[in-house]
């Protein structure tokens, strides 16, 4: 087929796969760091404020936020190319997943769904934070008190996507068997979710006391 022959034999599929890998790893690294930073509220509000002031003073926030937004959008486009766009293909995948009832196939389907959800939810989150600048314990506490239900969803959706995402990249590229990778990814995800929930409780309490 002429159109296939003329466009073949280039490295674009490789580059796209590498961008998917690199942007994914960056985002997982960011998200886990982000959650650890947020969890400093568990130590003390002063600690949380010191950290956010540090990031602010040295312009790290002003660099990191736009950078991560761009990487996230890139990841959405590049990793999203895997998601079937035609309705019949989507029906095939759905029917296939239901028929097979296979764990890793189902987690992929939900990764596609959570990916779409994150696009919307993370955009709202960034908007809320940036318009409510600066980041400090009191601002975050107010936000958490008003929108705890929103952040509850975002926490689970984001960590799910990140945890299974990094697992899948290790499966695709790595030299290790899947099971141990799965255990480690799930363990980290659970730890991060617990930290996130604890931080949420801490913020809501802080807001309630104000």
């Amino acid at each position: 087929m002429l159109q296939r022959v003329l466009t073949k034999s280039n490295k674009s599929d490789l580059y796209l796969d590498l961008i998917e890998l690199a942007s994914g790893l960056l985002l997982v690294g960011f998200l886990w760091t982000h959650m650890l930073f947020v969890s400093t509220i568990l130590i003390s509000p002063e600690m949380f404020n010191t950290l956010s002031e540090f990031l602010d003073t040295y312009y790290l926030s002003y660099f990191a936020i736009p950078f991560i937004v761009v990487v996230a959008l890139l990841h959405f486009v590049i990793a999203g190319r895997r998601i079937p766009t035609r309705i019949q293909e989507q029906r095939i995948v759905w029917q296939h997943a239901k028929m097979l009832n296979h764990f890793d196939t189902w987690t992929w389907v939900f990764q596609a769904i959570t990916g779409m959800a994150i696009l919307v939810l993370a955009a709202i989150h960034v908007w809320l934070v940036v318009t409510g600048w600066p980041i400090n314990a009191m601002n975050s506490a107010d936000r958490m008190e008003a929108f705890w239900w929103f952040y509850l969803v975002l926490l689970f959706v984001g960590e799910y996507h990140a945890g299974f995402g990094i697992y899948r990249q290790f499966v695709k590229w790595g030299m290790f068997p899947r099971k141990p990778i799965g255990y480690v990814a799930k363990l980290i995800t659970v730890v991060i979710i617990v930290l996130g929930l604890a931080a949420m409780v801490a913020f809501v309490r802080l807001g309630g006391g104000a």
């Binding site: 599929d13 296979h102 899948r168 695709k172 030299m175 068997p177």
Partner: peptide, 24 residues
């Protein structure tokens, strides 16, 4: 690079070939 890493091949191979390792 078409593989999405769903690993249904690896889990359903009747000969239990190490397909995850081969694909990677």
């Amino acid at each position: 690079f078409g593989c999405m890493g769903l690993m249904a091949c690896d889990d359903n191979c009747p000969m239990e070939l190490p397909l995850q390792m081969q694909l990677a």
